[in-house]
C-alpha cells in the first residue's frame, strides 16, 4: 500500500508509565476511508495508543505519520486533520449541550452567529434539541456519547478517533452510535475505533488489529481473524425431541465436526472448525435440516467471543 493511501502509519510506538509497559512497540497501517478497529481487553493499551496518535501523549520511542504529517515535528498539522472522542466524555459538564458546541465551534473559527447555527444543526441531527439547554452533567450516557461525537464533527475531520464509543451503553444507544459511525465513514472520514467487543469490530471495521499488553498480536479483516479462531458455534432447538438423533447425524455430516447434545432434550450444539465461516455454514445447515424434514424451533449462530479469539491467539503464540 502506498504511503498516500494511508491515514496512519505508526512504527514501533512505545509508551511506558513507570514500570508499566502500556504500549510496547505498536505498528499500524490504517487505510483511508475505512473503519479500522483496535480490539483488546481493558488495559491492553488502546487508549494510550490513541492518545499518542492524537498528539496528546508523546511516545517514548517510535513515531507515526497521520496523512503524511509527522506526529512529533508537525503536531499542528496533525491536529488540523483529526478529532478525538475520548473514552470518557470530552465535554464541559458545567455547560449546557448547546454551550459546549457553540464554544467548540468558535474555537474551530466560526463567528458567533455561524457557531450558534452549526451547534443548533448538530443538536438537531443528533436528536438532542430537547436537551440543548440542559447542563451536560444531567445527560444520560447515551446522550453524552452523541454530544461528544457531535463535537468531533463540528468541522468534518479527515480522521476521527473513537475510543470505546459504546462501552457502557444500552443496546439501543449502541445501535444509534453504530449508525452514526457508518454515516460518518460513508461521507469519507477515516475512523479509528477502539473496542473490547469483537462483535462491534466485526460490524463496523474493515480491518482489525488485536492488541494485548501493549502489542499487536494479530491483524487482518474480521473474516481472517475469525477464521483463524474458528470457535463459532451453531445451536439448534428442535420442535420434536425424537428427531434429535437424526438432526445430530445431519449436522455432523453437513459440517464435518462433532455435534454435542445439550442438557435441554430438544437442543444440540455444533462447534465449528477453524476456517469455517459461521454465517455461511449457518444457512447451509438450515437448508440441510429442512431437506431432512426436521422441524426447528430456534436457531442461533454464536460468533467467537473476544475471549476465544484471545485464547486461540495466545495459544498459537505459545505453540
Amino acid at each position: 500500500m502506498s504511503q498516500r493511501d494511508l491515514a496512519i502509519r505508526a512504527e514501533g510506538l512505545v509508551k511506558h508509565f513507570k514500570d508499566v509497559k502500556a504500549v510496547d512497540g505498536v505498528d499500524l497501517e490504517v487505510p483511508t476511508g475505512t473503519v479500522y478497529g483496535v480490539l483488546g481487553p481493558n488495559g491492553a493499551g488502546k487508549t494510550t495508543t490513541v492518545r499518542m496518535l492524537a498528539t496528546l501523549l508523546r511516545p517514548d520511542a517510535g513515531n507515526a505519520t497521520v496523512f503524511g504529517h509527522d506526529l512529533l515535528t508537525d503536531a499542528a498539522s496533525v491536529r488540523s486533520q483529526v478529532s478525538l472522542t475520548g473514552q470518557y466524555a470530552s465535554l464541559d459538564e458545567d455547560l449546557t449541550g448547546a454551550e459546549n458546541l457553540v464554544l467548540l465551534s468558535r474555537l474551530y473559527g466560526y463567528a458567533k452567529p455561524a457557531a450558534r447555527e452549526r451547534a443548533g444543526d448538530l443538536l438537531e441531527a443528533f436528536g438532542l434539541s430537547a436537551a440543548a439547554g440542559k447542563q451536560v452533567k444531567a445527560y444520560s450516557g447515551g446522550m453524552r456519547r452523541r454530544l461528544d461525537i457531535a463535537a468531533s464533527i463540528i468541522v468534518t475531520p479527515k480522521l476521527l478517533f473513537l475510543d470505546e464509543p459504546t462501552t457502557g451503553l444500552d443496546p439501543r444507544s449502541r445501535n444509534q452510535v453504530w449508525d452514526v459511525i457508518r454515516t460518518i465513514v460513508a461521507e469519507g472520514t477515516t475512523v479509528l475505533l477502539t473496542t473490547q467487543y469483537l462483535e462491534e469490530a466485526d460490524q463496523l471495521a474493515s480491518r482489525i488489529a488485536v492488541i494485548d499488553t501493549g502489542k499487536v498480536i494479530a491483524e487482518g479483516t474480521p473474516g481472517q481473524l475469525k477464521s483463524s479462531v474458528g470457535a463459532g458455534s451453531i445451536r439448534v432447538r428442535l420442535h420434536h425431541a425424537d428427531q434429535r438423533a437424526h438432526a445430530q447425524g445431519v449436522l455432523a455430516e453437513a459440517l464435518a465436526v462433532e455435534v454435542a447434545l445439550d442438557d435441554d432434550p430438544v437442543a444440540l450444539t455444533a462447534r465449528l472448525a477453524p476456517g469455517q465461516d459461521t454465517a455461511e455454514q449457518g444457512s447451509h445447515v438450515l437448508g440441510e435440516l429442512a431437506r431432512a424434514g426436521i422441524l426447528v424451533d430456534d436457531f442461533s449462530l454464536g460468533q467467537p467471543s473476544l475471549d476465544e479469539v484471545f485464547l486461540s491467539l495466545t495459544d498459537r503464540i505459545d505453540v
Partner: peptide, 9 residues
C-alpha cells in the same frame, strides 16, 4: 476529558 478535546484543537 474536556482538556483532551481542547488540546487536539
Amino acid at each position: 476529558g474536556v482538556s483532551d478535546r481542547f488540546r487536539t484543537l
